[in-house]
Computed example of a mutant assay.
Amino acid sequence: MNNLPSNPSEYSADQSSIDNLLWQYVQSLNPDTVAQLSKPEPKVAQIMEQNLRGMLGNLPPEHFGMTITTSRENFGQMLASAMMSGYFLHQAKQRMELDKSIQTLHSSRDS
Rank of each mutant, 00 (worst) to 15 (best):
S71N: 14
G54K: 10
F88Y: 11
M83D: 08
P60V: 03
L4Q: 01
Q27V: 03
P61Y: 08
S12Y: 04
A82H: 11
P40E: 08
S38D: 15
S28F: 01
Q36C: 02
E97T: 14
V34C: 01
L89M: 14
R109L: 06
G57A: 02
H63T: 07
L105Q: 12
E73Q: 11
M1I: 02
A45I: 08
E73C: 00
L105W: 08
D99E: 12
S6T: 04
E62R: 15
E62G: 06
Q24T: 08
M78Q: 09
S28C: 03
F75L: 15
L52E: 11
P5E: 00
R72E: 09
N58D: 06
N2M: 03
Y87S: 06
I18N: 06
F64L: 06
M48W: 09
E10W: 06
N3K: 11
F64I: 13
H106A: 10
S108D: 01
N3L: 13
H106Q: 14
L21Y: 05
N20S: 13
A92Q: 12
H90T: 15
L98R: 14
T104C: 00
M84E: 09
E97L: 15
F64C: 02
A92Y: 07
A45V: 05
T104N: 02
M96G: 00
F88K: 14
L21T: 04
R109N: 02
S85E: 04
Y25E: 02
P8S: 09
R53A: 00
L37N: 10
S28P: 06
D19G: 05
F88D: 04
A80T: 13
K100S: 01
Q91E: 07
F64E: 04
L56S: 01
S12M: 05
V44L: 12
N74R: 15
T104Y: 00
D110M: 08
M84H: 12
Q77V: 05
S28M: 05
Q91S: 12
M66S: 12
G54W: 02
Q24P: 00
T69R: 14
N74F: 09
T67G: 10
D14H: 13
P61Q: 10
P31V: 08
Y87G: 02
K100F: 01
Q77E: 10
M1Y: 04
N2S: 05
G54C: 00
T104P: 00
P40V: 11
I102W: 07
S108T: 04
V34Y: 01
S85C: 07
G54T: 05
L79V: 12
T104D: 01
S85L: 15
L79Q: 12
L98E: 03
S101A: 12
M96V: 06
N3D: 06
S17T: 12
I47N: 03
S12R: 10
P31L: 03
A80G: 14
A80L: 14
P5C: 00
S85A: 08
A80P: 04
G65L: 09
K100D: 01
Y25Q: 08
Q46P: 13
P5V: 01
L105D: 09
H90Q: 13
E41V: 05
F88P: 00
M96F: 09
Q103P: 00
S107E: 05
S71D: 13
G54D: 04
K100L: 07
L52P: 09
Y25L: 10
S17L: 09
L59P: 03
M83L: 14
N30G: 03
S101P: 03
S81D: 10
K100Q: 03
S28G: 10
Q46F: 13
S107M: 02
H90M: 07
V44N: 06
L98Y: 11
